[in-house]
């Protein structure tokens, strides 16, 4: 049997809002490590990795590892049936082809049963060691930049140098360049922009995906953007001391 109880149920709603437009169907893996997910978008350009650790839940019981295949749009529909302040319990019996969502508020409770799906998925090993530039900045600022740039062009060039991080785009009406410099705010660390770099790096990515990633903004005040020497982009939002949601995006390459 698998059962988890999340007092701050709105967190799960925010997680679904962050990933449901990027990924259609995904396996939620339940193990002693936590409630996790790894899935690619249908074009195999982006990968999302989610982890919610057991200690973040009021109650977490996992008798044996199970994988629950869910359509994320349907899961989101069910989560929207619960109130924002509800406590959410998710339960699945061993061998069952359904999962139960229970919403509790001081006024009552509601149960929803959703059919599970068989989804073929592969697990991917993620090597964090090739990182060559890391930028941590306010998530709202990153969201604003992606939105502004997508009104001008389709692709963003992200360049990290000693000067700062530059986001540039080009479109029919002209070009746009936005530079964020390192700025450490001791009193409000969440408003800081911190750049760590072992070598300058520059790569270009589709803005459509970047804007999709920023749907995770309500989960965290800050976002961490990493570029590897292979020009793979990772965008990470931490989830209130219980885990993270990470988006990986493949670069566009000059043909």
């Amino acid at each position: 049997m698998f059962e988890l109880r999340l007092v701050q149920g709105s967190l799960l709603k925010k997680v679904l809002e962050a990933i449901k437009d990027l990924v259609n169907d995904a396996n939620f893996d339940c193990s002693a490590t936590g409630f996790s997910l790894q899935a690619m978008d249908p074009s195999h350009v982006a990968l999302v990795a989610l982890l919610l650790r057991p200690d973040g839940f009021e109650h977490y019981r996992c008798d044996r590892n199970i994988s629950m295949g869910m359509n994320l749009n349907n899961m989101s529909k069910i989560l929207k049936c619960g109130g924002n302040d509800d406590i959410i319990t998710i339960r699945a019996d061993d061998g069952s082809d359904t999962v139960t969502f229970m919403f509790e508020s001081p006024n009552g409770s509601a149960n929803f049963e959703m059919n599970l799906m068989d989804i073929d998925s592969e697990h991917h090993g993620i090597d964090e060691s090739k990182c060559c530039a890391v930028v941590r900045m306010p998530s709202s600022e990153f969201q604003r930049i992606c939105k502004v740039l997508s009104s001008i062009g389709d692709t963003v060039v992200i360049s990290v140098t000693n000067e700062g991080v530059q986001f540039s785009t080009r479109g029919d009406i002209g070009t746009a360049n936005i530079v964020c410099r390192q700025n450490i705010n001791v009193d409000k660390p969440e408003e800081s922009t911190v750049i760590e770099m072992s070598q300058p790096v520059s790569s270009q990515f589709p803005l459509r995906y970047m804007n999709s990633f920023t749907k995770a903004t309500p989960l965290s005040n800050t976002v961490t953007i990493s570029l590897t020497s292979e020009l793979l982009l990772a965008v990470e939002y931490t989830i209130a001391e219980m885990g993270y949601i990470r988006f990986y995006l493949a670069p566009k390459i000059e043909d």
């Binding site: 990968l47 697990h123 090993g125 670069p251 566009k252």
Partner: peptide, 14 residues
């Protein structure tokens, strides 16, 4: 022309 690379090229299957 800019080609979009596939994410699978960056990860190993486990």
């Amino acid at each position: 022309v800019n080609q979009q690379s596939q994410i699978t090229a960056f990860f190993s299957k486990t």
